[in-house]
Amino acid sequence: MEVVAYYRVSTGAQEKSGLGLEAQVDYVHSAARQQGWKVVAEYTETVSGTIAPQDRPECKKALAHGLPVLVAKLDRIGRDVGHIAELMKRTSLKVATMPLADNFQLHLFAALAEQERSFIASRTRDALAALKARADDGDVASIEKLARRAGALVMGRTQANRDKASKAILERVTTWTESVRDPIDLCIRKGATTLQQVADCLNDKGIGTSRGGEWSSMQVSRVMKSLSLSFPL
């Protein structure tokens, strides 16, 4: 079966790092080999997932082929269930991480993913509220420690500064953690069965820790737990 590959990176940081794109290409070509699909064209663009697929220049080109569109993960084509449902009226969608799923199943996955993002946002707000409560109680040291670990310093100790710092910390840590989800997942899919093997895989790829250093099994364990990633049984 012939397919058209579509890759999307959502920010300038992802575009410059190449990690987001590299992982997507790896997913797509691995799935194509395993399923016997022939990738006849590939399109890449940097655009927010909030923009409907039909309104993206490169995605339009992919759809114009009239062939199934293959993406690395469902959120690369879109994060809005409505957008995905509209797209499925025009083409057959294939997802590298779920190669056997049909359009109906993908629609269900999209709905579940949207709900999970809502839960994550709620948990993030709860975590921010907990930090704010600790700051209100005078526990500024803990926020300063988190800020230093995230590469920032709390400027002053007013309530407004504490609120801004804690919010920036949470956003920075969450963004970085999500940026290593695909590389870790790919290491596992390629045969890594232990924490140290994942660490070695990430180090071999030149992917640094949040501080730019090399990975250890303990660091991998903490990040995998945060991302709810695990080894296959």
Rank of each mutant, 00 (worst) to 15 (best):
M1L: 13
M1Y: 10
V3M: 09
A5W: 06
S17I: 05
L21R: 09
A23W: 04
Q24R: 01
Y27C: 03
V28T: 00
G36K: 03
G36Q: 10
V40K: 06
A41F: 02
T44Q: 06
V47H: 02
V47F: 04
S48Y: 07
G49C: 03
T50H: 02
T50L: 02
T50A: 05
A52M: 13
Q54L: 14
R56F: 03
E58Q: 07
C59T: 11
K61V: 05
H65A: 15
L67C: 06
L70D: 12
G78I: 12
D80Q: 06
D80M: 04
I84L: 01
I84W: 03
K89E: 10
K89T: 14
A96S: 15
T97P: 04
N103R: 13
Q105D: 00
A111W: 00
A111C: 06
L112Y: 00
E114W: 04
R117H: 08
S118N: 10
I120L: 11
T124H: 15
A127W: 11
A130R: 12
D137C: 10
V140S: 11
A147S: 04
R149I: 10
R149D: 13
L153R: 15
R157T: 10
Q159Y: 15
R162F: 05
D163G: 03
D163Q: 12
A165L: 13
A168N: 14
A168P: 08
A168L: 14
I169T: 05
L170Y: 08
V173T: 11
T175K: 13
T175H: 11
W176M: 08
S179F: 06
V180N: 02
R181Q: 15
R181D: 11
I184Q: 01
I184Y: 02
T194A: 12
A199S: 06
D200W: 03
C201D: 03
C201M: 09
C201W: 03
D204W: 00
I207C: 08
G208A: 09
T209P: 04
R211H: 05
G212L: 00
G213F: 15
V220D: 06
V220K: 07
S221D: 12
S221T: 14
K225G: 04
L229P: 10
